[in-house]
Amino acid sequence: MIKYFINIVAGAISLMKGLFVTFKNLFSKAVTVQYPTQKLQMTERYRGLVDLRIEKCIKCYMCVKICPTACLALAHKETAEKKKEFVYFKYNMELCCFCGLCDQVCPTQAIYLNQIYEIAVYGRDKLRDIDLLNTEKYGEWAHPTVK
């Protein structure tokens, strides 16, 4: 009989402890980021969209070879002066898994992952066959705070 009451009282006290934890948090600061008005700064190593510094690229095809999902497509031709020239350099964002291996493998740091993260679009065709040679390719996505 005494145990019965002890159980009830102990149970009530234990529930109070739980209530105290939530009460403490009731007045702590909210951790939410109010997204469209408030934006997070991406970290330095953030892996966003694949981007290209065109003048640095030596067309070594390392990035194309390392890509686990084969989302990069590159072709070049040789000019009369034995210089390599782009035919195309396409990037299929639908397949990209943002692993950053192309960035890591590039001998001249030509290909890199930028800091764009707001990449919602209305059509899939905008994600397919992104022309890396076009400097304005991410114009509509680029955020002013992104370098």
């Binding site: 970290t43 330095e44 190593r45 953030y46 943002f98 950053g100 291996l101 992952l113």
Partner: peptide
């Protein structure tokens, strides 16, 4: 982890 490797879920 985001700081270290640049991603939050699939670290690689």
């Amino acid at each position: 982890f985001d700081d270290i490797c640049g991603n939050r879920l699939t670290y690689n």
